[in-house]
Amino acid sequence: MLTFLLRRLFTMVLTALCLTFVVFYLTNLPPNLEKVAKSEAGARITDTEVESWLAKHGYAQPVLVRYGEWLGVVPGWTGTSDSGKATGRCVDAYPDAQTPPRFCGVLQGYWGFSTVFKENVGGIIITRLGLTGILMFWVMVLMVPAALIIGVLAGMREGSKLDRTLSTVSIASTATPEYVSGVILIVVFASSLVGLKWFKGTATSAMDGITFENFFLPVLTIALYGIGYIARMTRASMTEVMTAQYIRTARLKGVSFTNVVMKHALRNALIAPFTVIMLQFPWLLNGVVITETLFNYKGFGWTLVSAAGNNDIQLLLGCSVVAVVVVLVTQLISDVGYVFLNPRIRIS
């Protein structure tokens, strides 16, 4: 078990390094850097001026060195400005320090400086993640029980009318991406066309105080897409369990159907959905980005979109690190959890 965990952790770190390097490389391509130089030093500067600006701000080094600096394993660049003051990556990072540290990167806790929000990236990401965390929490509260109930109800009597109806509903919900269901929900519940106006079409006000009125639609939008998928997995696993020998034995012993489902089948049927729910996180991330953009809720997804749209390299890098880590950690948890939950799998 320990070697399994260590091997998984090693692969995870390697993956994270590769991915962050890819993102770093793609966000630091020459055209992007040129854009940064032009937005910081004026749009009309010449090509030579661009180059000297880039050299002065530490962008002229090879990509690998700069990746190392950003990561915090290579000493940050240093130089002197025109007025003779010492400049450098770590000077920008800790402007108050007498002697700035040699290393300042993600590992030391410095994530860079956002050119759009004029704030440290670390701070922005923590606030935004908090907002998204609230959204995700309510999504989970709505999605997991709903999906499990639908799946179990559909799977306990395979081929019945209830099963057919619920299966079709779950297919329909997987066929509706967030940007479609969001639009439909807004039109039905928040527009003047239908006239229900039960909820609000934006969640901007939810950032200050969450109410049922301003938060239900975004939560429902994200949850709907996931419900169908998890429900189908639960149904598949439930139908498999219901055909098992011990269920038949229990039925023949005279245990009532409700008891068979609740006490015998349910526990074994919920192992597979656990993995699926954990693996849903990366998909939820997509949903979060779309929904936050659609409902104008300024959380993590919204920040990612605005960072990418405004060529805010440091912020985009920070967001990608968080996204990648979330995906990898959930993969790890789902693997480890599966082994714990399923006694039939033993890893030597």
Binding site: L19, V305, C319, V324
Partner: peptide, 26 residues
């Protein structure tokens, strides 16, 4: 390993990195 690398990328992030005018330029 390579396949898992691409799969661990959130799709939208990948699109935002790949589908930009700057990227077409390169």
């Amino acid at each position: 390993f390579l396949a898992n690398l691409i799969l661990a990328f959130p799709v939208i992030l990948l699109f935002y990195l790949l589908v930009t005018p700057e990227m077409v330029e390169t």
